[in-house]
Design a protein around this nucleic acid. Structure first.
Length: 792
DNA sequence: GTAAAGCCCACCATACGTAC
DNA sequence: GTACGTATGGTGGGCTTTAC
């Protein structure tokens, strides 16, 4: 092969000869071509170009008088070289980056290093993001800083040739990287379980010099944690793979496998879609709790905002009246089809579940799925809270007048809280007429969603007497705790994080249960029960209506009926009153307190005290009688002599301190002594009884004495207009509305709540009961033996 | 001719900006 | 406060160029 010169007509026989000729004979043209093509080494101070780094250093020294030095070092061991390099980098504010892979040569290996700031930044075509805040680290030229490390394979001796003087750019620490020393320190702290915030605090306290290591940010710590996989939860950077690893570990462990069902996205399943994700979890403790407490009640609800998926929780209520989550389903949707699949897996694991009450929100998906798989519950109840929420939303949507909104809501609340079935039926007829006049649109919604097909039995208070809970707030509360405490009110943490949080939650609940079974627990419920026991003195009288039925009177409230349903609580109930031993499962009462809060109300306490005491009812007399409280004086060993002897001892110490101050010269020691003395004087001043505090007041121990002064804005407040919030009717409003309702002649049947005849006959026949005054279809009346409302 | 040094490209870890 | 997407730049392989 022949090589022809591009600058003259000469033709050369070899490639080597060609390059030699070009460099010797056409040096200027050659360098110019390097410049034009952007190759070789270009001087950052003039237009000169050189083919190699050493030529360029020579140019800088001769032409620009930079005085760059080519230095040499030798090291016996790799460790010495590493320490020297780290030190050199810190001192010269340089980052020597390896330019090429380590290369093996005759009897030594070579590594080439260069300045990290050499080079030209070339943005990518599809660049959409801004450059970094400090700008690119490439300054657009070649920095003469370099280092060649040669390690002799036979002797292990390391020889280094280097230049550490920068040209073309300043020494800026913002373009350096964290040193390996600080990295390993952070890594160690994180691995030992220290929180990133505390690690940052520790590093900043520990590092005094102003260098790159002093500029550690939270982001750096987060990156190190991610890079070295220090987090115990994230098994993989990819959430999907991390969850897979977790599931594998949980499934293959020796302990109880908590994974009931796992369907990955992208995997085909005969019943589910390809994109569906389902993860059903139940720990051994949860299985035990579900079997133990499911007979009474099952609460189900789901939440968003924990991950990209939905979290559905199945809860039961334990003997202490506390909610225990017994299974979790993490899924991408919550329709009956998917839930049926998950429930089937649950049934396979813990058998069929027979429950008395099933409580969920107003949607049918949970109930339908549950009844498809498990035995149909005796009763289904809507969560009161969800009913209220839907009513408010629909009232705001369909009724424009604010006064009408308030009136309709008040009527609905009276209806909702009515505890006697007969009264409720009558009132529902009357409310129907009021709604028809105010908003026919709302009436249609109300009838279809809450009245027809016996739907009123799912939310009305009179149909849930004796149920242990009236709303799904247990599940809501759990979801709130999960979001606010474990997830720090953040959305979209990974599924692996949620998985671990749930399993840890179950573990904590298990321990809690383990602790409170033998010890008992002063729960919120126990406090509520005791509060009601103390209120017994406000009850004015009790009238016996039969063997197990009483009417209880209050001076302000209405009369309520109390029935005894069990002579003693059969279960291992822990929410008993410690004073009269009554529990919520023994009685029923028609008062709103019993219905709303599911605890033994003051009326039940009154009956129990009356029966167990075997006395005539005379609570009124005890109204002002407070139990005597004996306060023991715990100030044991106090005497008048003791402070005087202490004072004498202190004076001796003060004399010694005088001696020490004269003898000691060390500055730090004196400073430390001074600090302690200042502190001692402050303590003594604080302890001096200068003022006598008022005693015997009922002030709370943690009450703030003065409100803290705060800065306040001087800007004019633009603030949003407050919405006209719908309020519960007060007792006087309630009486007034009841009276209004009583004047209405209803147009509906009190049994089926339909206006026309059930049998669709041409002539609609009506009949009024002489005892309860309720209007019914003749057909509805005649189908029963007597009035179906008052049973007369 | 051969070893050393340079250049280009692809890959991927790190660091940054943005949005929630 | 942090998850996420992506720009930036270090690393390494392979080829080219240069020095001896």
């Amino acid at each position: 092969e022949m090589f022809s010169c591009e600058f003259c007509p000469l033709v050369l026989a070899s490639k080597g000869s060609y390059f030699n000729h070009r460099k010797r004979k056409h040096q200027n043209e050659y360098l110019r071509s390097l410049q034009q093509n952007g190759k070789g080494f270009c001087c950052s101070l003039c237009k000169f170009s050189a083919p190699s780094n050493k030529d360029m250093i020579y140019h800088y020294n001769i032409v620009h008088e930079k005085g760059l030095k080519l230095l040499h070092e030798q090291f016996a061991m790799e460790r010495d070289f590493a320490a020297w390099k780290e030190n050199l980098q810190t001192e010269t504010k340089t980052l020597y980056v390896q330019l090429k892979k380590t290369r093996q040569q005759m009897d030594y290996e070579v590594i080439y290093f260069g300045c990290n700031r050499s080079g030209k930044y070339v943005p990518k075509d599809d660049a959409t993001h801004c450059t970094k805040s400090q700008g690119t680290s490439k300054f657009g030229g070649k920095c003469p800083v370099y280092m060649i490390k040669r390690t002799h394979l036979s002797s292990g001796l390391i020889s280094v040739e280097y230049c550490s003087d920068h040209v073309g750019h300043d020494e800026e620490i913002c373009h350096l990287r964290l040193s390996t020393k600080i990295r390993s320190k952070i890594c160690g702290k994180l691995a030992s379980g220290m929180e990133p915030k505390k690690v940052l605090d520790y590093i900043r306290d520990d590092h005094r010099k102003i260098d790159r290591d002093a500029m550690v940010t939270r982001k750096d710590i987060w990156n190190i944690r991610k890079r070295y996989h220090i987090s115990n939860v994230e098994k993989h950077e990819n959430d999907t793979q991390s969850v897979d690893i977790w599931i594998k570990e949980l499934s293959t462990g020796n302990d109880f496998n908590p994974v009931v069902m796992y369907k990955q996205q992208g995997v085909t399943d005969c019943d589910l879609l390809k994109d569906d994700f389902v993860l059903c979890l139940q720990t051994e403790f949860q299985k035990h709790m579900l079997r133990e407490f499911a007979q009474k009640m099952i609460c189900i609800d789901s939440t968003h905002s924990t991950t990209k998926f939905l979290l559905t929780t199945i809860m039961v209520i334990d003997d202490f009246g506390e909610a225990i989550p017994t299974a979790w389903i993490i899924s991408n949707r919550e329709d009956a089809e998917l839930l049926t699949r998950a429930f089937s897996a649950l049934k396979h694991k813990c058998g069929d579940i027979m429950t008395d009450i099933f409580m969920s929100d107003l949607a049918n998906n949970f109930y339908n799925a549950w009844t498809t798989v498990f035995t149909i519950p005796n009763k289904r109840l809507y969560c009161n809270w969800h009913v209220d929420k839907c009513w408010r939303r629909m009232i705001a949507k369909t009724i424009s007048n604010l006064e009408d909104q308030a009136t309709v809501y008040a009527y609905l609340k009276i209806l909702h809280c009515e505890t006697e079935e007969q009264k409720f039926r009558k009132m529902l007829q009357e409310v129907n007429d009021v709604l028809g006049e105010t908003s026919p649109q709302f009436l249609e919604y109300f009838n279809n969603s809450y009245v027809l097909d016996d739907k009123y039995k799912l939310w009305a208070s009179c149909f849930r007497i004796g149920s242990i809970a009236n709303n799904n707030m247990y599940v809501e509360a759990f979801h709130r705790v999960l979001k606010s405490v474990d997830f720090s009110k953040k959305q979209y943490k990974g599924v692996d994080n949620l998985l671990m949080t749930l399993i840890k939650f179950s573990r904590d609940k298990c321990l809690e249960q383990f602790i409170k079974m033998p010890k008992g627990k002063s729960t919120h419920w126990v406090a509520e029960i005791q509060k009601r026991h103390r209120l017994v003195r406000t009850v004015t009288g009790v009238v016996s209506l039969g063997e197990n039925e009483w009417k209880v009177e209050n001076p302000t409230d209405h009369k309520y009926t109390v029935k005894k349903i069990e002579p003693q609580c059969l279960g291992k109930c822990q929410i008993k009153c410690s004073m009269c031993n009554v529990c919520v499962h023994m009685y029923t009462c028609t008062c709103p307190d019993f219905l709303m809060h599911a605890v033994a109300c003051k009326h039940i306490h009154a009956i129990e005290i009356s029966i167990s005491g075997g006395k005539t009812f005379a609570f009124q007399q005890n109204r002002n009688k407070e139990p005597e409280v004996v306060i023991e004086n715990t100030l044991v060993g106090t005497s008048i002599v003791r402070p005087q002897s202490l004072k004498a001892n202190l004076h001796k110490y003060v004399d010694k301190i005088h001696e020490v101050i004269d003898l000691v010269d060390d500055e730090d020691c004196l400073k430390a002594l001074g600090k302690r003395l200042v502190l001692g004087v402050a303590v003594a001043k604080g302890m001096r009884p200068t003022e006598s505090f008022p005693r015997g007041t009922n002030m709370s121990s943690n009450k703030h004495f003065d409100t803290q002064k705060r800065f306040y804005s001087t800007q004019a407040k633009v603030g949003r207009k407050r919405k006209n919030r719908l309020k519960y009717p007060t007792s006087s409003e309630s009486t007034e509305l009841r009276a209004k309702l009583a004047r209405i002649t209803p147009q509906l049947c009190a049994l089926c709540f339909m206006s026309d005849d059930r049998n669709d006959t041409a002539q609609v026949l009506w009949r009024q009961c002489e005892i309860c005054d309720c209007w019914l279809h003749s057909t509805c009346y005649s189908n029963h033996d007597g009035c179906p409302i008052c049973m007369s």
